[in-house]
Design a binder for these strands. Structure first.
Lengths: 226, 226
DNA sequence: CACTATACGGAACGAGGATTCCGGATGACA
DNA sequence: TGTCATCCGGAATCCTCGTTCCGTATAGTG
């Protein structure tokens, strides 16, 4: 399902032209392989590994994606697209706020776990590829809205921000991804986290909610240093 | 506090002999520098960076620790020692179970965040250095006991295992470490997680608690493949 | 079927980083 | 203070991995 038959945002050199049939096939294979290996090994995954898994030569990988970073960016962007789609679906659904929110965070954790880079990036470890910037903003807006509705309905505690939400579930996703990626385990932990977010048992929290502004600040500081 | 004046489990070559004074000093410096840089950059930290930070040449680093892995292992083992010390203190204290448990998980997350490798390794990403095996077991025993007491006292939900506990807080630690490592943020999130662990708001959980056995299985599988 | 623009595989190359080596410096001890 | 074993710094070496190059293969087309 992760094929890129719809559009190819970048191409090595030359403006754009319909890819030859085998090229399209290979590109998709590479993307799938990369997604899988990046998820497994973070970006420690090797170009050669990816090529092998995709059943192509390294040359092929590097022709389609001029740089390892470009490949990573594309996979990341892909993930964001799916995430945003889920978020939009949740927003559009007429489920109760609690249900919509819970379903969505399960999906969120799922996406992030399947590709741990996504989780890392949402926690600002990685630079965001420019193509993904607006997707990220859409994502943030969606989380804000879903959380807001749930809080307004009184089913989620008020002292939690959208940025907190993203972080918390990214943490769950990251750790379960690192530890084998069993979806059953992940769902369990998401459920625990959700219990922690209910107003019923809420204990006063130290500190203040994290804002996306803070996240961006961390991101800047990081790219500033190197 | 991180000096190794007590014992030096490994030495490049030759059985063992008291290190010359300057050598001991340098060894300690290297260890401290490594701890700091590994915490900051995971094991992306470079030998040269570590040497520079420690104010020594690369040769010195490599003589004391024949391999980058050896250095990493030593830092890891060090962390485990501190963790186990905290755990023992918590066990020995006569605080109420709830207090002891909560204080300990805060410390746990703190340790793990300060050195993100620790968090990753507790989630079985890394192989455990042999020197640390018994420390890990002591750790597990302590968590088991502290959690058991808290559950017996009815302040922590029953459908959570010691392994779950380790994973959940490792997740929090990991994500906050990745996102800048602000302790205030970490404490906030630990508090949320703790709320999720209280019996009051507990919702039925899907799946079954994770056992240390499962963790070990993942570890084996991983080292099997490579 | 023949022809050509594309794409392919994988060897060759280069950069970055870990490890090794060795001449010079230094702590330990008589 | 003199001697020597030990340790130090950092240049040299080796290895891994991303990227480039090129001869060969193939999809697309008439």
């Amino acid at each position: 399902m992760t094929t890129t038959s719809t559009k190819n945002p970048e191409r090595a050199t030359s403006p754009d032209k319909p890819l030859r049939a085998d090229a399209q096939r290979n590109r998709a294979r590479v993307l799938d392989a990369a997604e899988e290996l990046f998820a497994q090994a973070g970006n420690g995954a090797t170009i050669e590994d990816i090529a092998k898994r995709a059943g192509v030569g390294v040359g092929t990988v590097c022709r389609h994606f001029p740089t390892k970073q470009a490949l990573l960016d594309e996979v990341l962007t892909q993930s964001f697209r799916e995430l945003v789609a889920d978020a939009d679906a949740a927003l559009a659904s007429d489920d109760e706020p609690a249900v919509a929110f819970e379903r969505f965070v399960h999906q969120l954790a799922g996406h992030q776990a399947r590709r741990r880079m996504l989780a890392e990036q949402m926690a600002t470890e990685l630079e965001l590829p420019p193509q993904a910037l607006e997707l990220r903003d859409a994502m943030r807006a969606a989380i804000t809205e879903l959380l807001g509705r749930a809080q307004a309905a009184g089913v989620i505690r008020d002292d939690i921000s959208p940025a907190d939400t993203a972080m918390l579930f990214a943490g769950i996703a990251l750790i379960t991804a690192v530890a084998g990626g069993d979806p059953a385990v992940r769902d369990r932990y998401v459920a625990v986290m959700l219990d922690g977010l209910r107003p019923a048992a809420a204990t006063p929290l130290p500190g203040r909610p994290m804002q996306y502004r803070d996240v961006d600040k961390i991101l800047q500081r990081r790219s500033g240093k190197g």
